[in-house]
Design a protein around this nucleic acid. Structure first.
Lengths: 236, 236
DNA sequence: GGTCTTATGTTCGCTAGCGTACATACTCTG
DNA sequence: CAGAGTATGTACGCTAGCGAACATAAGACC
């Protein structure tokens, strides 16, 4: 079925609009660790993740990094292409391997300018993304590593099927911009309480409500904003 | 002169586009502390600051706050109106009193959808704003209060004429999301070195290069991105 | 089955920034 | 010019998270 592309943005797109870009949509595998674009480099495609999750992260001069936002099958990677900048000072890395679609830069720009519904959809998504970025800033400022780990797990979980994710503590530390030992500590706390079980890169979430009760308000704010701005299914 | 509106976005707008919105542009005073919009409330206008500076900040449930970004005469306040969300989970507060223009929600939406040049301009600005937000997240994660104060002073300075700004340490602390005492400390350091002089809400920057050398890379990243995305003057 | 690599756990001293409490000092107002 | 209010300076103990060094353990590879 054409309607079951697996990416939220593509799925809510009216059929006429979808037909325009369909010929140029290319299914791609997005293996863990793959860099979709590099800071300052012009983008060649936008990506619509399906089962993959992509992290937008900023890498500092000294190598330290921090995640700005995360994109899954609800969104699109490469907003700079239709926003007009061609590039951003951040990097996009596949945080959880999977599949997705990509669309050449030229096509997305054409369609964006041509079709108001398409444009409005992408802009609403962009606004949701902005909220996520803002909340990341707030969270980085005010909340504990424990809380942030919960938020991060929940955001990732929402973008996956199932309750398991493959991710070493080292990688999570990179995303959160903290020490690996800090993540170990926070993860142990959660494990001791039976909220998750962790083993060499495999995290199983055993008690999601507990995770939600331990995280800060940031998670709920972002989630609510995504729900408000992005209707869950294609209009009939 | 029509070309001397004093707001960067309005000034680079082609004449034909400017004529469309001119009748609806209303000059307004923006006194210090005025709230232009409140978290979650639908916006009635967008604002184009001229001599004022506006802070976008998030206020947490417990009252703590954190600045997400700052907007001066290079930008526009209320992007949610054309991005499609109508509201945001943040608040816009005048951080430095002055003047500006405002435009009714309906007009900005109309013009945005009608005129591609106008749309592209606003979207490029929005991308610059996104960079500022991202960098705020990074800075909150990795940099010291001293560095962040320098960044904040520079960002504010860039949006003002002259080298003086009116701002108590209490207010700066609110923006940065830190304790007032922390700001006192950082400001004292700068004062001792002759970089600034501080007196009851009046900050004079005595040595801007010194300020730039003490701040983190975040300031330069944001500044460069604004320069890249927003041409400095109206095309002839 | 032994070795190598990678992932996770543990420890220790250190520092930035927090929370709190209070001291000073400028400025406005009566 | 005295007193109130506001802005800034100072001090002290506390904690989260850092940096570094090292210990254990689970797969992976031969």
């Amino acid at each position: 079925m054409d309607t079951c592309l697996g990416n939220g943005l593509l799925e809510v797109l009216p059929n006429t609009e979808l037909l325009h870009i369909k010929p140029f949509l290319e299914k791609v595998e997005l293996p863990l660790g793959k860099t979709l674009y590099e800071s300052g480099h012009a983008l060649s495609h936008v990506y619509f993740p399906v089962t993959a999750i992509v992290s937008l992260l900023y890498v500092m001069e000294n190598g330290d990094s921090a995640e700005i936002a995360v994109v899954g099958n609800e969104g699109i990677v490469g907003i700079a292409l239709f926003m007009g900048g061609e590039s951003t000072p951040s990097r996009a890395v596949v945080q959880s391997g999977g599949s997705g679609y990509r669309l050449p830069a030229k096509i997305i720009r054409q369609e964006f300018d041509r079709s108001l519904p398409f444009m409005h959809l992408l802009l609403r998504y962009t606004q949701a993304l902005i909220t996520q970025m803002s909340q990341t800033a707030v969270c980085n400022r005010h909340h504990s590593l424990d809380q942030q780990l919960c938020r991060w797990l929940l955001l990732s979980l929402d973008r996956l099927q199932g309750n398991e994710l493959c991710m070493t503590q080292e990688l999570i530390a990179n995303m959160l911009g903290v020490r690996r030992e800090g993540v170990t500590n926070a993860a142990l706390n959660l494990q001791r309480e039976g909220v998750i079980s962790y083993s060499r890169g495999h995290i199983k979430v055993l008690d999601r409500p507990a995770l939600e009760s331990r995280t800060c308000e940031c998670y709920a704010v972002v989630k609510k904003e995504y729900e408000r701005l992005l209707p869950p299914c294609r209009p009939q």
